[in-house]
Each structure stands twice: as structure tokens, then as C-alpha cells.
């Protein structure tokens, strides 16, 4: 990695926008994520956060603008190709294979990364796969329930499984969409530790409503309201920003209308 690569942001959106019929969900957003940072994306409900990460992960096609990843224009790539480049998304509403075992859930993710050449597919290394699955489950503390059907796990464990699947892909950019939603206090602490560990090797974009979690994890915060970015900066600055306070109190903000 030369000096130039270090300067290029890992992810950049340029004037990205998405319109659903008459509704403009995201308008002209320029977002830049540096390598290795943990960025929180906050804003009131309906601000366009999930739509924005949908555009980044490729689940949605933008109406305007471009997405660049590691300096490469990925706007026209589908979701699967972006995952292969390292943009990994975890769903806001837990999305796992409920009828498969916990181990099989992770195995689907692990094998995608392991089996790159045709030869790997024809003579798969089952032992190596099983070892990696076990390791991935160990990281999130689910090794003990590997043989259970995923749908039978308690909710908090399903969230952890979802994160284990994401980690198994070894993401360069991990997008977490409200990971602490519905978790108990102890589970939230465990999740925060996990995200800090992940951040040692990857860039993290975190959509989160729990401000304690945001302040603990994020180096910078981006605030969205009505489809636009209204503020960006370190946590202290954002907390003091009057416009952000207005947006959260639900008063009409200066930039809109």
C-alpha cells in the first residue's frame, strides 16, 4: 500500500441520492470514510440512514451520484460483487437462515470466502471449513449452540450470529444497522467489545440510536436529517451542535423546507 492509498478514503459517496416515487429519501450526500475509523451515522427515524447504507452496500440502486470504494467506482456493481470487495452489511431486521443450524449459517459465509477457485469447489476442504466456522462462532460466544437451529436461539444470540456471519466474510468495511436494538444491557456491553475488536482490522459504519454506544465507539459522527447530512465531526462537537439538537427535538431545522 503506497502513500497514495493511505490518502484515498476507503469509501466515498459523491452527490448520492435516492428517490422512491415522489419521496426523496436521500439527497446529494457526500460521505467520506477513512481507513480504520469507526463512524457513527445517527439521525431521527426516517432521516434516510438505512437508505444511505442500502446505496453503499448495493441493495439499492441510486437515482443520482456515485459510490467509490478504495478509489474504485462501484456504483454499477451489484450487492454480491460489493460484498466480494469487502463491503459487508448486517441487516437491521435480523436476517439469518432460521431453519439451518447455527454452524451452517456461518458455514455459508465462510465457504464463500474460502472457495475462490473451481478446484476449491470440486475438492472442498471440509475440515478447514469446520475449523473456521468454530473459530467464528467462538469470537461471538456461540460455539456452544453450533448444532441448534438458528431460529430457536434467543433474539440477542440471533443478532450475534448475524454479526458472526458478517465477520466470517472478513470485511474491509463493516456496516452495522442498529446492532444493539432489542438487546439487554449486558449484551450491549459484549457487542461493544466485539465492535472494538473488529475495528482493529476493519472500517466500521454504525447506524445507532443508543447515544451511549455511539459515544463509546465512534471516532466521528455523521448526522442525517430528511435525507441530508446536517453535521459531521467528533462526538463533543456534535453533542454541542444546535442544529443537531433541533433535529432530534423535531423542530423545523434551518436547512430544510
Amino acid at each position: 500500500m503506497g502513500p497514495l492509498a493511505a490518502l484515498t478514503p476507503l469509501l466515498e459517496t459523491r452527490g448520492i441520492g435516492k428517490r422512491f416515487g415522489g419521496l426523496e429519501a436521500v439527497t446529494g450526500v457526500d460521505l467520506r470514510l477513512a481507513r480504520g475509523e469507526v463512524r457513527a451515522l445517527i439521525g431521527p427515524n426516517g432521516a434516510g440512514k438505512t437508505t444511505l447504507v442500502g446505496l453503499i452496500s448495493g441493495r439499492l440502486a441510486p437515482t443520482t451520484g456515485r459510490v467509490l470504494f478504495a478509489g474504485r467506482d462501484v456504483t454499477r456493481l451489484g450487492a454480491a460483487d460489493r460484498v466480494r470487495l469487502g463491503i459487508v452489511y448486517t441487516f437491521q431486521i435480523t436476517s439469518i437462515y432460521r431453519r439451518l443450524t447455527v454452524a451452517d449459517n456461518v458455514a455459508v459465509a465462510v465457504q464463500r470466502r474460502r472457495l475462490r477457485r473451481l478446484a476449491d469447489w470440486l475438492a472442498p476442504d471440509a475440515r478447514g471449513l469446520a475449523r473456521e466456522v468454530e473459530a467464528a462462532l467462538g469470537v461471538v460466544g456461540l460455539a456452544g449452540v453450533a448444532a441448534e437451529p438458528a431460529g430457536a436461539l434467543p433474539y440477542g444470540h440471533q443478532r450475534l450470529l448475524e454479526i458472526a456471519m458478517a465477520l466470517a466474510l472478513q470485511p474491509a468495511l463493516l456496516i452495522l444497522d442498529e446492532p444493539t436494538q432489542g438487546l439487554a444491557a449486558a449484551e450491549i456491553d459484549a457487542l461493544c467489545r466485539l465492535v472494538r475488536d473488529v475495528a482493529a482490522g476493519a472500517t466500521v459504519l454504525l447506524i445507532e440510536h443508543n447515544m451511549a454506544v455511539v459515544l463509546e465507539l465512534a471516532g466521528r459522527i455523521t448526522v442525517m436529517d430528511r435525507g441530508r447530512i446536517i453535521a459531521e465531526g467528533p462526538p463533543r462537537e456534535i453533542e454541542a451542535n444546535p442544529e443537531v439538537q433541533r433535529a432530534y427535538l423535531g423542530q423545523p431545522s434551518a436547512t430544510s423546507s
Binding site: S57, R59, G78, A79, A80, D81, V83, R84, V88, Y89, F91, S95, I96, Y97, V108, A109, R112, R113, M165, L169
Partner: peptide
């Protein structure tokens, strides 16, 4: 959808 977002075409 989940499978696509694990990187499978």
C-alpha cells in the same frame, strides 16, 4: 436476499 449479501451471485 441474505445469500446475495454474503457475496453470492
Amino acid at each position: 436476499e441474505r445469500t446475495r449479501l454474503l457475496g453470492y451471485h
